[in-house]
Amino acid sequence: MTWIPNRIFVFALALGGLPLAAETPAAAIQRGRAQYVQACGFCHGEDATGNRAPDLVRSPLVNHDVNGDLIAPVIRNGRPDKGMPAFPLSAAAVSDIVAFLHARVDESLHSAHVSNDYPAARLLTGSVQAGRAFFDGAGGCRACHSPAGDLAGVAAKFTPLDLEVRFLYPRGAPRTAAVTTPGGQTFEGRVVHLDEFTVAIRDSGGWYHSWPRSQVRVTVHDPLAGHRELLAKYTDADIHDLFAYLETLK
């Protein structure tokens, strides 16, 4: 968002040239939020999504504003024709409100994202006990995993969201293949490529090999097959329970 450096510049001017390091966008937004709630929130909603007056997050004027060039005059002069009074706020206060409104737009623009630090509290709706039972029983997880073995401390290694997404489908566990040539020789290794026409592996010595599928016999072992089968079976409760259990493995 281009407003951030410009905003710092405006603020620096307002304070008569204090060092830039003294100001962060977050601080201006924080002050702006308080100023906004006090002056504007009653009509435009405390989160600026509208109430008796329009939603400002979706406002064309806010979206076209650059450093307050459109917003500031509206705050100072009001819109008497639409019943909005003038607000005689200081330049600094107006500037902070502008920063807050742009931050709200920015939040909406970035709302198509679940961050890796998504709070555990929102994910923890399941039962640890039921999750353990699923792990030991219906889920069949014990066939490959152990809480004291490969999963020891797993919840400390990943953020809660990462843990949930990874236990559902841990990307990156490679398939292995045994490829038998027409001469009867068998090669084994990690699958590099496998499609309708070609198989390619990297053997334990690090060498790459490829063959036309039509000329060899290929047996693939996929360690994630069990995870895929579960994706088609899980209830959402199973997932939340299993997460609650795995999150205890710190």
């Binding site: 999504t49 939603d55 997050v57 979706r58 939040e107 909406s108 623009l109 970035h110 709302s111 198509a112 994202h113 679940v114 969201l161 997404v165 559902l168 489908y169 995870h227 895929r228 994706l231």
Partner: peptide, 12 residues
């Protein structure tokens, strides 16, 4: 909510 209000994570 405005915009997407969340997102999905692709698994497989």
């Amino acid at each position: 909510p405005e915009g997407w209000a969340g997102r999905d994570r692709n698994l497989y």
